[in-house]
Design a protein around this nucleic acid. Sequence first.
DNA 1: GTTAAATCTAAGCAACTGCTTAGTTATAGT
DNA 2: ACTATAACTAAGCAGTTGCTTAGATTTAAC
Lengths: 187, 187
Amino acid sequence: MARKKQYNEAEVIEKAMRLFWRNGYESTSVRMLEKEMGINQFSIYASFKNKEGVFLESIKLYNAQIKSITNTLENSNNGVEGIKNYFYDFLDFSREGAIFKGCLVTNTVNEIKENSNPIIMAALKRFSLSIRELFVRNLKQDDERDVKEIEAQADYLMNALLGLSISSKVFNEAKLKDIIRMTFLPL
Amino acid sequence: MARKKQYNEAEVIEKAMRLFWRNGYESTSVRMLEKEMGINQFSIYASFKNKEGVFLESIKLYNAQIKSITNTLENSNNGVEGIKNYFYDFLDFSREGAIFKGCLVTNTVNEIKENSNPIIMAALKRFSLSIRELFVRNLKQDDERDVKEIEAQADYLMNALLGLSISSKVFNEAKLKDIIRMTFLPL
DNA sequence: GTTAAATCTAAGCAACTGCTTAGTTATAGT
DNA sequence: ACTATAACTAAGCAGTTGCTTAGATTTAAC
């Protein structure tokens, strides 16, 4: 009875996600999304309700794509060594040619004001905590590790990972790998 | 022959700087600056040319205010211990009551797009490099330190410091101090 | 007191923001 | 072929952005 959609929602979200990743949430306008996704504003709002909806779908996709790395970490049984591999894998994952885009989530956490967009903020915090939990889980695998220190070590690793998201825009690849190497020295 | 200015430029920049610090560059509008600085838009443009001008003056003031800490580091002769103290001092400096605002410069680096505002970006990079140079200088004071490793250690420290700027918005004070403690374990 | 210049206020500019609405076009069941 | 319905296009909404301009006000030298 009705006309068919001339675009695939999964395909256009992929394009939107990459734009958000490069650009950040606030400074990506609906007009830019229109061009990048190749569909009209009306269609964007029909499919995803609003800009926030497009972003939340983008995070879901980001989450699915990064799963290939987090799964490796989740299935690893080699303690801190698995986390170290996650750091290197993440660096690879966040690269687009010679440019490091950082983590979509971390970039946005840093951009969004705490109480300006609670829905997005909640989604972002949920993501970060899930990574930290994987760190804790893997740290516990090392038998000789001091159990009281594990939480502090997880925070230390999160700090380094957050830092890497900024550093990757300033330092070159060799330096970034040196930073990772040094980060794991005390663990 | 002419009317007197009804405001003190240094005073209004102090207010502008604190607003930028809390809010970021992009999401601070000229209307907000107007209210916070207590002067009309015309006066802002007359005194500082444009929004960018207000921000550049704000960075100068920020630089002057953080000098009390960087001077301590610059005059210190105790190597890595001096840098550790800088980290703790910076945490104190960036606090406003119970809230940590991070570093004005790091916050803005993360917000500004690389090629959208080269003038501001250049000013920010200059600031970051000057901090890193102080780290290198202090690391060299430790006689037993491996000279080849010093540059890598400086990058590692910058990464931790950049991370702290984000972490301070997520973690509580006790955790932040634990992160600093762990950061200096391998040094 | 007059005059000239700097400083003030407030209105207004074009370009942009996220989002909506009116009207046209394509599609599938009858 | 006709018709109901969803998907399309493009124009337009009110609100905000950084910045400017027109005109009133204050000041100090003469």
